[in-house]
């Protein structure tokens, strides 16, 4: 709110009508009764990484650990007219927490919920924002990717949804961004530029760039500290990294790990890992080695990476299957 007061001219400031009923209830002492404290989701801690850009940092935990629903960086960007949420976390609980944090900082409507890709830790909180009636935006391939994942999510992550968990809680994009020119979303006085990428980390990666502050949300095209997961195409990802490194940014918010100000430096360890993975598997293939040999012998430097043992072998298997048809 301090950001809004400082930078938004009075005629662009939000009208408070939307909040009036809640305010009136509070005055009457009824709001607390209507929403007991135990039901009110605790606001997630968020950091303002740039004016009007708020990020909740995901925890460095495995996908099966308690707290696995809160491992991705998620956030929101506040414009003069409305707010865009960028990823919603891995559960209703996390989505609710993000929404509560948002409401502590802005009363503006949520006009967009942007998903950077299909993975569970970025999308399962979408349903928490249903009542805000945002437009759900993602890569043009996101709707199909979600359709493909819905059963898997329901079987494996039902406890992270609102009981009883149903497919309708797993909300897909109703607007798709095609690979090609950037698409701009206007939040009132500030624009977000969305870019859809060819197959890389996943088959539906989308990055979000806030022009006002030069902040780039990379989604999982950038992992900092946590072992990168190859679920799309290693070749696509290496090439996307090269393009990303050329984007002039002032702030970078990775999909996992600490935000920073130097994109090239943040990308470097991931680029080293992906290059070593690519070259290692290519060498195995050139020698006519089977998959099990590649799984055993492709061993890039793991010292810098969290969850390496859980993640790296699957990467080798995926990359092997991608490259064997080169």
């Amino acid at each position: 709110m301090s950001y809004l007061r400082r930078t938004v001219p009075p005629w662009l400031r939000p009208r408070r009508a939307a909040c009036a009923p809640r305010a009136a209830l509070a005055l009457l002492g009824l709001w607390a009764a209507a929403a007991p404290a135990t039901d009110a989701p605790a606001a997630l801690p968020v950091t303002q990484v740039a004016p009007g850009v708020f990020v909740h940092l995901g925890k460095p935990l495995g996908l099966d650990a308690p707290g696995h629903d809160d491992i991705a960086n998620i956030g929101f960007v506040v414009g003069a007219r409305c707010v865009a949420v960028i990823d919603s976390g891995g559960s209703m609980r996390v989505g609710d927490g993000l929404r509560a944090a948002l409401r502590q900082r802005s009363p503006l409507p949520v006009c967009y919920l942007i998903n950077t890709h299909v993975h569970v830790d970025h999308v399962l909180g979408n349903a928490a924002f249903r009542d805000e009636h945002p437009q759900f935006v993602g890569h043009a391939g996101l709707a199909a990717a979600l359709a493909r994942s819905r059963d898997f999510f329901l079987q494996n992550y039902a406890a992270d949804l609102e009981a009883p968990a149903t497919a309708t809680e797993i909300i897909g994009a109703d607007r798709g961004v095609e690979v090609g020119p950037d698409v701009a979303l206007d939040l009132g006085g500030r624009r977000l530029k969305l870019r859809a990428w060819p197959k890389a980390h996943s088959d539906c990666d989308l990055t979000v760039y806030d022009e006002a502050t030069g902040t780039l949300f990379t989604g999982d095209l950038l992992f900092v500290g946590r072992t990168p997961v190859v679920d799309g195409s290693i070749k696509g990802w290496v090439s996307a990294d090269e393009s990303l490194a050329a984007v002039p940014v002032k702030h970078v918010v990775p999909g996992h790990g600490a935000p920073g100000t130097d994109l090239a430096a943040a990308l470097a360890p991931q680029q080293r890992y992906l290059d070593a993975l690519l070259e290692g598997v290519r060498t195995q293939l050139a020698l006519g080695k089977p998959l099990q040999d590649a799984l055993r012998d492709v061993q890039p430097d793991k010292s810098a990476w969290l969850l390496f043992e859980q993640t790296h072998p699957r990467n080798v298997a995926r990359v092997y299957q991608e490259l064997e048809w080169e």
Binding site: K199, S202, D203, D231, S233, L285, L287, G288, E324, W325
Partner: peptide, 22 residues
């Protein structure tokens, strides 16, 4: 995600000493 290519295409990948063939 890596599906594609020509149905029925067959790829051979021999070891350097030609004692193994994938």
């Amino acid at each position: 995600a890596t599906e594609g290519g020509t149905l029925g295409q067959i790829r051979f990948r021999p070891s350097a000493d030609a004692k193994a063939l994938q």
